[in-house]
Structure formats: structure tokens, C-alpha cells
Simulated assay, not measured.
Amino acid sequence: MEKIERSELKLKDYRALIIFTIVLSIFFIFGCSDGKEDNQIDFGLIASEKTLPDSFYDVSSGGLDYMVRKSINQSEFEEAWNFYRFENKTPKVDLDKKDIIFIGTVESNSCPYEIDNENMELSPVNKAIKLTLPKQYGACFLAATPRTFVIEIDKETSKDIKNLVIIDESGEETIIPFK
């Protein structure tokens, strides 16, 4: 009788050890994550203004409603800032550590776009940043108005990025090379 109790005890111990190992593994796999997907990109929004260059439709990508520029130094940043016709003075950015990306588009005049970490990701395979334009809900008027976003990203992240891929509300992807 004593042998049976010992073997039952050992079996219970093994079960507890297996359950503990599984729980610990799940904790290490999911619990130690910083919550970010591998393809999410950290960026800072420097400006978002209802402005576009005067010649937007002449020089935008193939007549599309998008125009992007990448600035890696102060003179390029100031040139792009003025090209996109921002009213305020060029803000201070540490261009030794950051690159600047200008994203010009048009939006509904009643439902402006907002960008955040949820709708922007890195695609290293395509050497691109993917921006999914948020779906517009409610009574959005069709009248298009200008919008330019200016973001900063780490130079290390930016160095191999050559394109911006914009995914519109219908899911259509448009690849726009940086100028």
C-alpha cells in the first residue's frame, strides 16, 4: 500500500512540474514582450498641417494624391519645410540621430487623417514604411483638403528605407519612392 501512495505522489509531482514549466514558458514567450510588433516603427510627429506645395498635382507621384520626401540633413529639412509651405519656422530636430519624412496627401475636409503607431509599420523586405490610412466613419464630406504630416524616425531605422507604401481605405497599396 505504501508503494502505491509513493508512486501516486511522484505522478502528482510530475504533473505539477509539467504545468509549472508550461506556465513559465508562456510567461517568457508573451510576458516579456514590450508589446510592440517586430514591424512597428517608432516615430515622432513633428507637424500636421493643412498644407501642400503649390505644385502638388504637377509633381506628386504619377498624379496620385500623395507626395513624400525624406530629409537627412538640415538644409534638406529646411528646403522641404518651405516646399510644403509650412507657416511656422522650421522646428529644431537632432538630425545627427533622426531623419525627417514629409507625407503630403489630401483628405476629407470633415474627417481629417491622424497617424500613430497603430497604422504605421516597417517593411524591411520592401525597404519601405507602410502607412495604412485610417478608415473614415460617419458623415465625411467628399471635398478634398490638403494635409502634410512631418515625422521623425531614427537614422538607423531610416537608412535602408527607400519608399513609402500607402494603403488606402479600400486596401489598395501605392508605392511612392522618396524624393
Rank of each mutant, 00 (worst) to 15 (best):
M1C: 07
M1R: 12
S7V: 10
A16G: 12
I22V: 15
L24G: 08
S25T: 14
S25Q: 06
G31F: 01
G35Y: 05
Q40N: 08
F43G: 06
L45S: 03
E49L: 03
T51I: 13
T51S: 10
F56P: 01
V59Q: 00
S60P: 01
S61K: 09
S61F: 14
L64E: 14
D65Q: 08
N73L: 03
Q74C: 01
E76G: 00
F86M: 12
K89T: 14
K89E: 15
T90L: 07
P91K: 03
D99L: 06
D99R: 08
T105I: 14
S108M: 06
C111M: 04
P112L: 13
N117M: 15
M120F: 02
E121D: 15
P124R: 02
K127Y: 10
K127N: 15
A128M: 08
I129Y: 01
L131P: 10
T132L: 05
T132P: 02
K135L: 11
A139H: 03
F141G: 12
L142R: 05
A143W: 03
A143T: 13
R147H: 06
F149K: 00
F149I: 00
V150P: 10
E152A: 13
S158E: 09
K159S: 15
K162F: 04
I166Q: 06
T174C: 07
